[in-house]
Design a protein around this nucleic acid. Sequence first.
DNA 1: GTTTGTCAACCAACCAGTTAGTTGCTACCG
DNA 2: CGGTAGCAACTAACTGGTTGGTTGACAAAC
Lengths: 186, 186
Amino acid sequence: MRDAADTKRRLLAAATEEFAERGIAGARVDRIADAAGCNKAMLYKYFTNKDSLFDTVFGESVGKFVLEVPVDTDDLPGYAGKLFDRYEEQPETLRLAVWHRLERPDGKWVTEIVLANEIRLHDLQRAQDEGRLSKHYTPMELLVLIQSISTAWATTNSELGVRTTLSREQRRGLVVDAVRRLIAEQ
Amino acid sequence: MRDAADTKRRLLAAATEEFAERGIAGARVDRIADAAGCNKAMLYKYFTNKDSLFDTVFGESVGKFVLEVPVDTDDLPGYAGKLFDRYEEQPETLRLAVWHRLERPDGKWVTEIVLANEIRLHDLQRAQDEGRLSKHYTPMELLVLIQSISTAWATTNSELGVRTTLSREQRRGLVVDAVRRLIAEQ
DNA sequence: GTTTGTCAACCAACCAGTTAGTTGCTACCG
DNA sequence: CGGTAGCAACTAACTGGTTGGTTGACAAAC
């Protein structure tokens, strides 16, 4: 019954859900503890406070993400499609990232993101040097474009009435096709 | 000295800043009243509660936005550039929209958005019918793509270390060029 | 018996929303 | 013109409930 590691894991899972849903200011510490089936004191023992709990949750979320969706420099449209799939299946990742950007603008940079990004930039650069990838955009420009296009549907305000009229497969198709067009030679 | 309309305007201005900065859950009603230089009770007289104050702020922000940035179906890259400019110069608009999407997912639809969107879709459709615009993407797909590309830089998490390394003009150039590529024939 | 995990109860600060009372403007009356 | 009644604009202080964070007592494992 007594399992510190498991308690910690349950707290993290509950916190992930709560933060993804409501953000930092909207999240309630009591609700997280309740959902984890344990006491608030545990939360403050394992994570020093609300903000640092969020940071842990976000770091963990990003860590999983970069492991699970590696960039394929020889198939950027396919990469964009995989990003799209991941955001569709686990929207918490994206929501946490948006909350992070809005609510912790000067929070410590998550090293997982910085490192993963440097590797991606380097890989793209090499693909361009070796002639496997169009040089029309710089590696950084490519990353920004692919990122924004793969999250296009998720970040569109619902007023466009868009979510309902197109199937997931159609929306995915647009993402893949748009990236294909961007990196096409000429 | 006693000017109801002006008090209301000051409250709206203060609320816009506070909500854009901190979102709904993070905003403080006292802070808004203080910044507006008036009493909290005034806020509750003119706007019934915090949520409806946010709705008013957001509706007003969107209303101004759609008036100031009309779509030009014959120059979509230029339209994307204007969107980019507007988001650079008045980031509150975009921030409010993101807070809205995160914190009021089932709030009432802002009619300004719905209407403006219908008009845009219709205009794009006609441009395609008259052969002035590529039919590769549907009007709705075009809107979603243009929207996401023009906000690409603003919605990229700072971990990419991107904001500092490229000038505003360079970032704008990318947005315009990407849209140009997407709607190019062939 | 000592360390470690757990919890109920507690606290001070905070926060959205209310109320009872005051102030300044103005339209009407003499 | 001078006085004043009425009303909208405004305010200070309060309320009931919530929130992040703490603590001291107890229980289980070793």
